[in-house]
Each structure stands twice: as C-alpha cells, then as structure tokens.
C-alpha cells in the first residue's frame, strides 16, 4: 500500500486527485446520458404496456455486449479520445436503468393507476405524477446498479490511452508495479462505494416517505 500513500503520487498532471476526478467525470456524464435515453424509453413502454419484450430483449442483448470490444471498435472507427469511452460506458449503463424503469412502472399497483385515471388525470399526469414517483425505488435500483458497473468498468478506458483510475492499473501492469495496480483497484472500489452512498442519499431525498418499505409503522 506504500504507493497509495506516497505524497509524490498525489499531485501533478498524473496525480491521484486528477485521476479520481477524471474517473468521476466519466461516470457521472455517462450516467446522465444513459438516464436521458433509458428512463423515457423504459417509462414509456412500461406505461403503454406495449413492446415490453423489446425492452427485455434489448436489455439482454446489450448486457451480452463486451465493453472492451465496443471500446476498441469505436477507437478504430473514430480515433482515440473520450468519445469511445462514453459510447462503451453508455451502452453498459442503459440496460439496468431501462430494465429498472420498465419494471418499476409496470409494478405500480393497477388499482392506483386506475384511481389516477378515475379522478381525471390525463395520460401524461398518470405517468409523471403517479407512475414515475411510485416507480422511483426500482428506478434508483437500476440506476445504482448501473453506477457501480460504470465506475468499475471505466477502468478499462485506460487501455486505449484515456484517463481515469484505470491508468494506475495499466501503468502499474506495464511497469510491473504491483503497488500502483493495487492502489488503482482500491481507489476504484472506494469511489464506487462513495458514488453509491451519494445516490443512496439522493434517493432518500427524492423518494416519497410513503413508499418506504418498513419502519414507518405502516400496515399492508
């Protein structure tokens, strides 16, 4: 663990703080893009109930896609840089978010949805005011799963020369510097835990207390 605590590695353009920020940057931007694509798709299909098999099939097919291959293919096609990293990571993040949103919207009690229409909500109101708020726990489930995968997998971006904590792993590998590799691994795991904690906090703030499963003295 000596490498990790050597002050020399904590500064400069190849220092740990910069690598952490790069890694966090890949993760957050990836998640934003993936959420913007996956949540509307999953919610729409969940709401209409039509094309569910497409969502499930697409999710499974994307899950089978090896991220390394996607990264390399886009590099070969579009050249080095951050673009291939985002393509590969967004494709990785879409399936869990889309599946979570779809499942969440489908899982809303049909009685609740019936009541929403019955009191005179329009379809957009049913989706935005009732289905999505009630689906939030499962949407967050998918989203946090995606976040963990993206943090872990952003490591391989360094294979094609991009930044992030993966640099420590691949540079360490090239130099046979085990300390540096280990530092990279530990920092990625740590970052993953912190990112997850952050989203757990966000979830607590944005999900209605009425949907908390236990501990509120609720019946049912």
């Amino acid at each position: 663990m000596g490498w990790l605590f050597d002050p020399a590695n904590w500064s400069g353009s190849t220092g740990i703080p910069l690598r952490l920020l790069e890694h966090l940057g890949y993760t957050l931007l990836t998640l934003v893009i993936a959420a913007l694509i996956a949540i509307p798709l999953g919610a729409f299909v969940g709401h209409t109930g039509k094309g569910g098999f497409v969502i499930v099939g697409l999710s499974n097919a994307l899950r089978a896609l090896p991220t390394t291959a996607v990264l390399i293919l886009v590099v070969l096609w579009a050249g080095l840089g951050d673009f291939p990293v985002y393509v590969a990571l967004v494709l990785l993040a879409i399936p869990p978010i889309m599946a979570g949103t779809y499942a969440g919207v489908r899982a809303v009690d049909p009685v609740t949805v019936d009541a929403a229409r019955g009191v005179g909500m329009r379809e957009s109101g049913v989706l935005l005011q009732v289905e999505i708020p009630n689906a939030l726990p499962l949407i967050y489930g998918g989203f946090r799963g995606a976040a963990l995968q993206v943090v872990a997998t952003a490591t391989i971006a360094a294979y094609t020369g991009a930044g992030g904590l993966g640099r420590l792993v691949f540079d360490g590998l090239a130099l046979q510097d085990f300390g540096q590799m280990l530092a990279g691994a530990v920092l990625v795991a740590l970052l993953a835990v912190l990112v997850d904690l952050g989203f757990a906090g966000l979830q607590k703030l944005t999900v209605s207390p009425g949907l908390r499963p236990v501990g509120t003295g609720g019946k049912r």
Binding site: V111, A115, R117, G120, R122, P133, V207, L211
Partner: peptide, 20 residues
C-alpha cells in the same frame, strides 16, 4: 374523459390511494 371524470366522484375497491 379527464374533464368528465373531474366532475364525477369515483371510489374504488381498496381505495386506490396514491401511496407516495
């Protein structure tokens, strides 16, 4: 329909309250 429904009260089995 939404306009019609807002003018008619509707009560269903198990109440169908919005849990959130």
């Amino acid at each position: 329909p939404p306009t019609l429904r807002r003018g008619i009260g509707y009560v269903i089995q198990q109440a169908g309250l919005f849990p959130h």
